[in-house]
Design a protein around this nucleic acid. Structure first.
Lengths: 248, 248
DNA sequence: TGTCAAACTTGACCTTGGTCAAGTAAACCC
DNA sequence: GGGTTTACTTGACCAAGGTCAAGTTTGACA
């Protein structure tokens, strides 16, 4: 019965929401998703948008609530947590700066399938869902950007499903570690961006198992000391977790 | 080391491909995805499309190949199979009549993440990927239909990930069975649409485990005799597998 | 109708990862 | 600096599901 959410859910009031500063607008319009779009489109989208802040542990929204806002993460880390009725929880995805999320819920006007939780202090831009939908109708550039973005994201979920069904917990942990660096050979020392409860949730195991798996991975050159991981040979680890099985 | 694919992969030549008959065109234009679109759009999409047939066991394409055709299943059953280097395989999705698949690979112009296999004799319509992309640029109705379709499909994958991480194998089997009927109460007798190796792959377990789980599910009123399943009380089964956990 | 192959089941055993409980280490806070 | 909380680790045990091997049943086909 892992509890990833914690208790300190503080729903924010509108006093937390503010109009966009020039700085926010600059950040926003330079994001991968939006940087290709024209000025008028950006202006319309941000017209009724708001910036909100959350503290670590805050809940942005709960599974089952109606999806009204497209979320754009300006700063921080957000985890999407799936919960079962027994109280069990798992982290389905973790987002970082510049990522757009829960588009699918907004587009289908369906309830959120997951609860969003701030893993660190975070700043988000919220764009009203109906604004997005009407803009999609008018702007084919935006539509195409949305299609490509959804399709890419879709493929990461397919990879996730394959990993869950075909790989062992230690292989998934290794994949998580490989995901922290773009490098694929030689050695590397990294700071873990999440605490170990979060990592366990992301990988789909219990924290106790995570501890033990880090012991196991020592034989593949992985050394973990508190928040720091050293990998002596990325090639060896890649071979162990069979990254790139999609090309088999 | 389950082998879901089997050996009899018979790549089809172009002799299997034919132009569309009037009948095919009618079928095609009545599909949920396309029925809202205008006549000119349909004509352009089908201009260079072709109809292909496969026998049970045939491979449509392999994981890793470049995605060139949007696949529309006119008739039959297709399974998307993910493989790992050890030879392990799992069925990520199963499609039936009228469903459109591997759009994400076509849209991103990336290699297929899965191998497609005909689970029964099947007929498909293949639309060239570049035709689809150019049509998306021109036609905002098509774009919107694609966005909604991708978003819906996206949400089924999210549910799948949640189920894999939060539910037991027997709950997933129960969910699979519940997925075979729209009914949610009373009793029902159904014909299993797939053989048990396929079901095991879909649920993410071994065939041996499937046999045993059917024994387990007897206590929830599930009786399986060869290809037929009887469920005495769908409500009980739904409670067991906690369908609708997304609303927790 | 007999034969062969494929599909499915069953049993014995093993491995992976979960559970529960206790303990240590680090962070936070007056 | 002492006390509390939170994060993490370790150990002993357990259960779910996988593996291997041996059946049985089914179905296709000669």
């Amino acid at each position: 019965m892992g509890n990833v959410l914690g208790q300190n859910a503080r729903p924010i009031g509108d006093d937390n929401a503010r109009g966009l500063t020039a700085n926010d607008l600059a950040t926003f319009s330079s994001l991968p998703f939006f940087c290709e779009l024209g000025e008028p489109c950006l202006r319309k989208m941000t017209q009724e948008a708001k910036v909100v802040r959350y503290q670590r542990g805050d809940i942005l929204f709960h599974q089952g609530e109606e999806a009204k806002w497209l979320h754009i993460l300006l700063d921080g880390q957000i985890g999407l947590v799936g919960s079962a009725s027994g109280g069990d929880e798992t982290i389905v995805e973790i987002f970082k700066n510049g990522e757009v999320f829960i588009a699918a819920a907004v587009l289908t006007k369906k309830p959120y399938l997951m609860t969003a939780k701030a893993l660190t202090t975070s700043r988000l831009l919220l764009v009203p869902g109906d604004k997005l939908l009407s803009e999609l109708r008018d702007n084919s550039d935006l539509s195409l950007a949305m299609i490509i973005s959804l399709a890419k994201h879709f493929r990461t979920l397919v990879r996730e499903i394959k990993d869950l069904k075909l790989k062992s917990a230690s292989q998934r942990l290794a994949l998580y570690l490989m995901g922290l660096t773009p490098r694929r050979e030689g050695s590397v020392i990294m700071h873990l961006p999440h605490n170990k409860n979060v990592i366990a949730g992301r990988v789909g195991i219990r924290p106790e198992t995570l501890s033990r798996l880090f012991q196991t991975l020592k034989q593949y050159g992985v050394v973990c000391e508190s928040q720091t991981v050293a990998i002596t040979d990325l090639g060896i680890l890649a071979a162990f977790c069979q990254e790139g099985d999609e090309i088999v």
